[in-house]
């Protein structure tokens, strides 16, 4: 075992946490992973901020608001290698469906005129707690440089595990057809 284990960080931006669930699906292999790495900023250990520089950052989800951008840039600054995991990070995914309509229409429908909306003020919320939406949803690589992409919705646990082990052990990745077949 190396003296200092490489650190990895993970985040879910405009995603559904499904990719993180998939990561947890590696089941008992998480012990094996824990031997290989230490987790830094991640929903898995609930670290809110980076404590050190990391070897790998896993990005779930694209960027739909300004906070996503800030977090993603923070990851770029703190990680040697960034991996986009899942279809939202790699392509925008389901959130990017809103790219078909203007942001004005989106907000109007969501906060004012939608059939299930109760909003007597007729105003769009301007609470600073709510991050400002971007004009459209961007896949991660359109905001920062991304080193690797793992598609899938979500990428299966075996795929994530194989990719991580290959990355951390500096071995060429072996992804048999079954692990990258999505239909």
């Amino acid at each position: 075992m190396p003296a200092t284990k490489p650190r990895i960080a993970t985040t879910s931006l405009a995603g559904c946490f499904g990719c993180h669930m998939s990561l947890l699906d590696i089941d008992e292999r998480i012990l094996q992973l824990a031997e290989l790495v230490d987790f830094d900023k991640s929903p898995i250990d609930d670290y809110k901020q980076f404590t050190q520089h990391c070897a790998v950052g896993l990005i779930e989800g694209g960027c739909c608001n300004e906070e996503n951008v800030a977090v993603l840039r923070d990851f770029r600054t703190h990680c040697d290698v960034l991996v986009s995991i899942g279809d939202c990070a790699t392509m925008g995914g389901i959130p990017a469906l809103r790219n078909m309509v203007t942001i004005e229409e989106c907000m109007q429908e969501a906060y004012v005129s939608g059939p299930s909306v109760y909003n007597p003020s007729g105003k769009v919320p301007d609470n600073p707690e709510v991050p400002l939406l971007l004009d459209k949803v961007y896949p991660a690589h359109e905001v920062v440089k991304i080193d690797y992409h793992l598609p899938g919705c979500p990428p299966p646990a075996d795929t994530l595990f194989a990719a991580l082990v290959a990355l951390l052990s500096d071995e060429p990745i072996k992804l048999p057809y079954q692990l990258i077949k999505y239909d």
Binding site: V69, L133, L134, D135, Y138, V143, V144
Partner: peptide
């Protein structure tokens, strides 16, 4: 390592207005 083509100011401009 940020993408030079992404302009955050421009991307949030409409939401700022709304």
């Amino acid at each position: 390592g940020f993408r030079r083509s992404f302009d955050l100011k421009k991307a949030v401009a409409t939401a700022e207005k709304i």
